[in-house]
Design a protein around this nucleic acid. Structure first.
Length: 462
RNA sequence: GGCGACGUAGCCAAGGGGUCAAAGGCGGAGGUCUGCAAAAUCUCUACUCAAGGGUUCAAAUCCCUUCGUCGCCUCCA
């Protein structure tokens, strides 16, 4: 079955064609680890994970590389601007390296809690400085750089199609009026490949290079590491939509200048999660919610994942607790129904091909997860399918959705609870309603609820 | 100032020239069931897709205008 993906380069859905039959090389722009990931960040990784799972579902072998940015990004505030790592370190009284380790671990914990399959290769920028230097040398020897005021700059004027991803219009300088221009730049779009001149004396992260002691520019890590692990040309590069005009534009410029040919075949970008009055959730704005915040409020990470899958990745999603509550209710209902299915029958070996196909088409159509969820509900509520048939379909769907549907088990009720329930059942037979209600209350205190049925009852964890 | 996206039921959200009297979820209403409660189940919940024009045999879907919301142009998912 065809796979359609919206390529930012063409702004269209394109039929996916891999460089190598049956294989996908996938690069995901990872996190800058100077603070916790917020749920907006996490959306990008759930998206990348869904993408990867879709390929696995289609039988592809996926080589997935993700970077961890642990160096070199400056805060935006000009007056107090400092390296984000350094700022984090000062804030918490730790070294930059401790900050990096701590938040990298926290990030991976979040990924795991969301059932995100970890990348084949995770690479840290600071461990690949040599690769970056090597790449800058290549760019330099190809004639795309100049040195000014101590820094090595990329000369965007040498690249005729600079800005093609973002469709930047380069003729008007005033377009960049908001940006404090660096007097050493020849062109406002030029960017630094290697810094030896920096504003902050105490910069802890420094390396020797052919251009002097310093640290790499903001974009080179992704170019250097992706080519190291995926080759100088690969299939897919993902990231947040904010990366299009600067980060990815510059990655493309560097890479194509270094390699002398096109670099990435498909660019996929996920839209933002916005908060409140449609305000962007951002670490620098300080209005962020972490996964842990949600867990503390009583939500399960799977519920957040369900919530995300309910919207297409290319659409802005306005986060509200009300909407998340909707996802929570839906997940609870799914868990109940699936638990009941498992009580009655085991999955059958061959899932219904018609419905499987419907699901398959939805996810292959540019990851239409909302439609995929609709198919899931269609299956769950179907009157024509046997429980085992439903379960086998659900197991298949969950390979992509990763909501933990396959792991739902029939509940084991503690003996004391089931004994109380038995007593209550007897009281009901005796029409001793008072005693029955008291017992229900007692069971409820132990965290279970009794649901009376036609001939019997059911106990369920609350 | 420049670039881009979006505006579909109470809420979240698919669809993106005819198969749409517009998926799905949440919520709500009513029925069945029932000692009570809950659960389950059934039915209902947009004659309409921000507004106004236009193109077309045909528009929620294309074009234009207006209004509104948001994002990017600075590190950012």
């Amino acid at each position: 079955m065809e796979i359609l993906l919206t390529n930012t380069m063409s702004r269209r859905k394109e039929v996916f064609k891999p460089l190598r039959e049956g294989e996908v090389g996938l690069y995901t722009c990872g996190l800058t680890v100077y603070n916790f990931a917020h749920i907006g960040n996490l959306r990008a990784y759930v998206f990348a994970d869904t993408l990867k799972r879709m390929f696995l579902f289609n039988g592809y072998k996926v080589r997935h590389v993700m970077n961890i940015t642990d160096v070199g990004h400056l805060t935006g505030d000009e007056d107090e601007g400092e390296d984000k790592m350094e700022a984090g370190a000062r804030r918490e009284g730790k070294t930059v390296w401790e900050i990096v380790d701590f938040y990298t671990k926290a990030f991976f914990d979040d990924l795991k809690r969301l059932r995100i399959i970890l990348p084949t290769v995770t690479c840290r920028a600071t461990r690949h400085v040599d690769d970056m230097i090597e790449m800058i040398r290549k760019i330099e020897s190809n004639g795309y750089t100049y040195v000014a005021g101590g820094n090595v700059y990329f000369d965007t004027s040498k690249l005729p199609d600079y800005g093609k991803l973002a469709r930047l219009k380069l003729d008007e300088d005033k377009m960049r009026s908001r940006v404090e221009s660096d007097p050493y730049k020849r062109n406002p779009f030029d960017f630094v490949l290697w810094f030896t001149r920096y504003k902050y004396d105490s910069h802890a992260m420094q390396w020797d290079s052919p251009w002097g002691r310093g640290f790499p520019g903001w974009h080179i890590e992704c170019s250097a590491m992706s080519s190291k692990y995926l080759g100088e040309r690969f299939d897919i590069h993902t990231g947040g939509i904010d990366h299009i005009p600067i980060h990815h534009t510059n990655e493309i410029a560097q890479s194509e200048a270094a390699f002398g040919h096109e670099w990435v075949n498909y660019w996929l970008h996920s839209e933002f999660l916005v908060i409140g009055e449609g305000e962007k959730m951002s670490k620098s704005l300080g209005n962020f919610i972490t996964l842990q915040t949600l867990i503390d409020k009583g939500y399960d990470p799977a519920e957040y994942r369900y919530y995300l899958l309910g919207a297409h990745y290319k659409k802005q999603l306005a986060f509200t607790l009300e909407a998340l509550d909707g996802a929570k209710s839906a997940m609870k209902k799914l868990a109940t129904k699936i638990g009941e299915l498992k009580e009655s029958e085991a999955p059958v070996s061959e899932p219904n091909s018609l419905l499987l196909n419907e699901f398959h088409e939805a996810i292959n159509d540019d990851l239409n997860t909302p439609r995929a969820l609709a198919v899931l509900w269609k299956v769950v509520d179907s009157e024509d399918l046997r429980p085992g048939e439903k379960l086998s379909l659900i197991d298949e769907f969950d390979r992509v959705l990763a909501l933990g549907l396959s792991e739902i088990e029939t509940e084991v009720i503690p003996k004391e609870v089931s004994e109380l329930a038995n007593q209550r059942d007897q009281a009901r037979r005796d029409k001793d309603w008072k005693k029955a209600d008291e017992l229900r209350e007692l069971i409820s205190e132990k965290g279970y609820e009794v649901l009376d049925e036609r001939d019997g009852y059911k106990i369920r964890k609350k």
